[in-house]
Design a protein around this nucleic acid. Sequence first.
DNA 1: TAGATCCTTGGAGTGCGCTCCAGGCAAGCG
DNA 2: CGCTTGCCTGGAGCGCACTCCAAGGATCTA
Lengths: 153, 153
Amino acid sequence: MTVTETTDTRTDTCAGPPQGDRRPDGKDKYTISEVAALTGLTAHTLRWYERIGLMPHIDRSHTGQRRYTNRDLDWLALVGKLRLTGMPVADMVRYAELVRAGDHTYAERFELLKATREDVLSRIAELQGTLAVLDRKISFYADAGRALASERA
Amino acid sequence: MTVTETTDTRTDTCAGPPQGDRRPDGKDKYTISEVAALTGLTAHTLRWYERIGLMPHIDRSHTGQRRYTNRDLDWLALVGKLRLTGMPVADMVRYAELVRAGDHTYAERFELLKATREDVLSRIAELQGTLAVLDRKISFYADAGRALASERA
DNA sequence: TAGATCCTTGGAGTGCGCTCCAGGCAAGCG
DNA sequence: CGCTTGCCTGGAGCGCACTCCAAGGATCTA
């Protein structure tokens, strides 16, 4: 059995700013600059991702130019999400290697994802702690502003 | 009027792991290595923070060694929180400069904090989006694991 | 066919946030 | 007294994640 994993971003119920994935549909071949425009990464970075092993094999045109597929864009979308969590690139490369290695790495990928999930949860908690600190400071300054205003009155 | 801003960490209702601020109370003079132990920063980093203007003036002993006060620790606690948000050190230096400049920078500090707050909120939203992606992948792998298991059965 | 634009490569360079080093001073201890 | 430990300084070095360069080939528009 081979279960093909595709991050089908069309079913993404991703909250937040809708900067998501405006791909001309029906298309499945993109030049590097098109991918750069779609992902917000530079062409340099895309080539660099490939060099360090973060990308699967990318198709080439008959003259050797890269032709990215929708699946490559799906992968880049996942990489983008992981990047937001602060995951080091080396760890993402590790995950990419597991995917390339085949089905027998499912368990390891599963563990890696769960660990990442825990990581994200604790980052969220950290940020909420910071938010509390900021809110206290903000109300301090709001009060101070009012005190200064009444002094001027 | 001068309103003295002190981040009174004793009233911090900061959620999360209780790694917070175990200061021997009654004390108000700390060597650099004590501060390193309390904050988790290295002595190198503490001196570097000072060099780049991220710290207020730090007292010195009669032989020229740094003596940090509880207020310095409060400041470092705030810096630590801001660091967690991914705020660039340069921006924190900017905030430190505003604090040093005096009361007339209240409005600007207020704006800076509010902007930071918005930033933190959007980072939390980003992370929650990522969490959703991770959860979908994790359940994909959980299902795949079950499929593989039943195949073996 | 000319010229502009886009793509290719390996390797060098950049900015950030530390991190460490060398060389030296000061205090505590047997 | 010598030894260890802790601290001081300016400046160099490091790891990460890009970011760019030079030189050349491919493709498109007029």
